[in-house]
C-alpha cells in the first residue's frame, strides 16, 4: 500500500465507483431490485438511501430536486450562451460534462474515448448555439448529440468497446479493504454488479440505453424519450422490462448462490 493513505483512498473510492459497485448498492438501497410483490418504489425515484420515517424531506426527493435544479441551471447557461454570453460556456461545461462523461464512459469503457466524445459533443453544441431554441431543454439535446457521436464512431471503427471487468485489474479485495468496507459486503456488491452488467450486455441495446439514461444518468422519462427519439410510454416500457429482467436474474443467481 502506498505511504499516503488519503489520496490512495480517494483513488480507490473512484475505482470503486467506476466499478459499478456504488450504483449497484444505490439501486439496491432504493429498492430497484425488490422482488415482485414487495413494496413498490416510485418509478421516478433516483439514487439515494431510503428515507427515514420521520425525515422532513426524503433524500431521494432532495436528489431529484437537485437534479432538476441542475438541469434548470444548464438550460439557463445554454440560453445565455446562445444569446452571446461567451462566459456561460464554462458554466455549461461544468454542469454537463460530468454527466455526459459518465454516460459515455459507461458505453465506450474507455476514458480517453469518453473524454474525446465529451469534447466533440460540447463543440457541436458550440457550433449550433445560434440555433438553440429559447427555453428548450439542453440536457436531452446534449445527450442525443453524445449518443449520435458515439454511434457514428462505433460504426466507423466497427469495434465496440471491450467489456471491462469492473475497474482496474489487481488485488481488488485488498484495494477495497482500504475503504473499510466489510469484505462480504464488497464481494456481494461486486457479484451483484457483475450479474447486472452481464444481463445489461445481453439486453437489446434500446432497452439497455433507456434503462441507463433513466436509472443511471438521472434523465426523466420525457428527456430519455427525446434522446432516443421515441415516446415516453416506450421509455417507461423499456425501463420496466429491463428492471424485470434484472430482478429475475438477480433472484435466480443470488438464490442459487445461497442454496
Amino acid at each position: 500500500m502506498p505511504s499516503t493513505p488519503m489520496p490512495e483512498r480517494a483513488r480507490l473510492e473512484e475505482n470503486h465507483e467506476e466499478s459499478g459497485v456504488t450504483w449497484v448498492t444505490e439501486w439496491a438501497s432504493v429498492g430497484m431490485f425488490e422482488v415482485e410483490g414487495s413494496d413498490k418504489t416510485d418509478p421516478e425515484v433516483r439514487r439515494g438511501p431510503p428515507a427515514e420515517p420521520d425525515a422532513p424531506a426524503s433524500p431521494t426527493r432532495e436528489a431529484r430536486v437537485e437534479s432538476q435544479s441542475s438541469d434548470a441551471a444548464a438550460d439557463r447557461a445554454m440560453d445565455r450562451y446562445a444569446s452571446g454570453d461567451a462566459a456561460a460556456f464554462s458554466e455549461l461545461y461544468d454542469l454537463l460534462a460530468p454527466r455526459l462523461f459518465a454516460f459515455l464512459l459507461r458505453s465506450t469503457r474507455s476514458r480517453c474515448e469518453a473524454e474525446d466524445l465529451v469534447q466533440q459533443t460540447m463543440l457541436k453544441m458550440h457550433c449550433a448555439r445560434g440555433r438553440f431554441i429559447r427555453g428548450a431543454g439542453v440536457v436531452p439535446w446534449a445527450f442525443s448529440i453524445a449518443r449520435r457521436l458515439m454511434i457514428d464512431r462505433a460504426r466507423r471503427s466497427k469495434v465496440r468497446g471491450t467489456l471491462g471487468d469492473f475497474g482496474d485489474a489487481g488485488d481488488v479485495l485488498a484495494q477495497l479493504a482500504a475503504l473499510d468496507l466489510a469484505v462480504d459486503e464488497v464481494v456481494h456488491s461486486r457479484l451483484v454488479g457483475k450479474i447486472i452488467q452481464q444481463e445489461l450486455d445481453q439486453l437489446a441495446p434500446r432497452n439497455r440505453l433507456a434503462f441507463e439514461l433513466v436509472k443511471q444518468d438521472g434523465l426523466t422519462h420525457a428527456e430519455a424519450a427525446k434522446v432516443l427519439g421515441t415516446t415516453v410510454m416506450a421509455v417507461k416500457l423499456r425501463t420496466h422490462r429491463t428492471c424485470a429482467v434484472l430482478r429475475a436474474a438477480l433472484r435466480k443467481s443470488l438464490n442459487g448462490g445461497d442454496a
Binding site: E14, E18, F89, S90, A97, P98, A102, R111, V118
Partner: peptide, 13 residues
C-alpha cells in the same frame, strides 16, 4: 475519475 480531465476543458475553450 468521474470527471473528464481538466485538459479537456482547457483544450475545448
Amino acid at each position: 475519475r468521474s470527471m473528464p480531465s481538466a485538459d479537456v476543458k482547457m483544450s475545448l475553450l
